[in-house]
């Protein structure tokens, strides 16, 4: 069963189509790899589905409910969606711990005014930061972390969204979470993604590393020039001639 479906979704920039009438589905509780050459529309699709940029045409449906043709960024978590960014976007001049607390506490203006972080927030933050091996760095400013640690903190932040407090997310868009990571850090991210799957979460993974795609994904969708090129089980799709031509350059 699809938890998220796009229906002829379209986005163009100055007449150039980044996403062109794309209709794809993402199955609940599975890890779907979203792959394609640079400029194929993968990150644009994530940005459209998380309200970071607005859709020009078409719509999408979450959990078979109403069709959505416009979504604002602050509304996406109401639909159980969370994400990382292709370029890491942390709250740089805030401590690591605060980068996690901020997604655990209340969203309402007035409730948040009378709330400070509590023991259970700290326990949850500790759990998350230990999973991404950043607990020792909890009091460091995010800007002082290494590139890999910054990536891990962003992963930790979305992991905190699968928390059982308020905005518990079901759909996780991870935009190139392995880029620039050392092997041991990759293992941590693989562990987090597998943990999310065990929890029944849906993960949509943008990734260029085909070995990781083969290892992790239940299903892959290949985009090219904003259109669907192929989809299916990784080994089947990756052996298709058109995929190799477009993506692997073989």
């Amino acid at each position: 069963m699809n938890i998220l479906e796009t229906k002829k979704i379209t986005k163009h920039f100055d007449g150039v189509y980044a996403v062109d009438g794309l209709s794809v589905g993402f199955e609940k509780g599975k890890i779907t790899g979203l792959i394609g050459p640079n400029g194929s529309g993968k990150s644009t699709l994530i940005n459209l589905l998380t309200g970071v940029i607005q859709i020009d045409g078409g719509s999408f449906v979450i959990s078979s409910k109403e069709e959505i043709s416009k979504i604002l960024p602050h509304e996406v978590s109401d639909y159980g969606i969370t994400r990382t960014f292709q370029e890491v976007r942390l709250f740089e001049q805030m401590p690591v711990l605060d980068n996690i607390f901020v997604v655990l506490t209340k969203r309402n203006v007035f409730s948040s005014l009378f709330e400070t972080h509590k023991k259970f927030h700290l326990e949850r933050a500790e759990e998350v930061l230990k999973k991404v091996d950043l607990w020792e760095k909890r009091n460091d400013l995010a800007k002082n972390l290494s590139y890999g640690q910054r990536k891990l903190l962003e992963i930790g932040r979305v992991l905190a969204m699968s928390n059982g407090f308020g905005d518990d997310s079901d759909i996780f868009f991870l935009d190139e979470p392995f880029a620039g990571l050392f092997p041991e850090m990759r293992k941590i991210v693989i562990g987090v993604i597998q943990h999310l799957k065990e929890q029944g979460k849906t993960v949509i993974l943008v990734e260029h590393n085909i070995d990781i795609i083969r290892e992790l994904c239940d299903h892959i969708i290949v985009l090219d020039n904003g259109k669907l090129l192929a989809e299916g089980i990784p080994n089947d799709v990756l052996s298709k001639r058109e995929v190799m031509d477009a993506y692997l350059g073989e």
């Binding site: 309200g51 996406v76 978590s77 942390l90 740089e92 901020v102 308020g166 905005d167």
Partner: peptide, 20 residues
């Protein structure tokens, strides 16, 4: 918590928005 959100807005408004 409100104050923490203010700082997050200062750091990256779009990023904090997608967290609701």
């Amino acid at each position: 918590s409100f104050g923490r959100v203010l700082k997050a807005i200062r750091e990256d408004e779009k990023a904090i928005e997608v967290f609701g």
